[in-house]
Design a protein around this nucleic acid. Sequence first.
DNA 1: GATATATGCAACTATATGGTTGCGTGTCAA
DNA 2: TTGACACGCAACCATATAGTTGCATATATC
Lengths: 106, 106
Amino acid sequence: MDDDAVFRALADASRRQLLDRLHDRDGQTLGDLCMGLQMTRQAVTKHLAILEDANLIATKRQGREKLHFINPVPINEIAERWIGKFEGPRLAALSDLKTRLEGEDQ
Amino acid sequence: MDDDAVFRALADASRRQLLDRLHDRDGQTLGDLCMGLQMTRQAVTKHLAILEDANLIATKRQGREKLHFINPVPINEIAERWIGKFEGPRLAALSDLKTRLEGEDQ
DNA sequence: GATATATGCAACTATATGGTTGCGTGTCAA
DNA sequence: TTGACACGCAACCATATAGTTGCATATATC
């Protein structure tokens, strides 16, 4: 899998919003996804293409409409392979890491 | 917390590599982190600043050196709040989502 | 067939981003 | 105190990115 494509795709707030919308209701058309957004349809198309390249969504043409489906697999793969290694029993204790570091100076 | 800063910080492969290095050995200096990289020290400094702004690392001056410490909290927060919602019992069954969609046409 | 609807494609623009070079500042050690 | 070392700051450059506008194409509907 291409980690980089997924991370880069997730880096944009508009694209995360589109994934959120698909999470709320899967299988929406391009027109559906554009509604209410302060963006042209073409901008949304580009974002969806980036998400599709990263394999975060899959599409299906149905007549003149294009349906979009979320694919949770890449996100979960990253969660397992990348985020898992940062877990640890002392995680909660580290939440004030910076504070502690700053306090060590005296 | 600022989701956007974290996602954008993680979007760059060089920055993920720096986090990997700190994961291998925490508390490295800027010089340590530069070694072996095809990048100038200033480029690395910029990457580290972005990681620090996203609260993914914390730093501490020690004499003329600057020590860098990884902070796993933001990554785990994102994992819990953002990635968790894409989990589901039918996750494995969806891994061939696109294939199935393409097969539905006939 | 004519028309409206849903999407696709391409060129263009502005700004963000990743990187560089050059020089300045603070700290350690002889 | 002189020089080496570790790092900071600022200007600059090239490319990537997010967005636009304009037009083309394909599919419904009448």
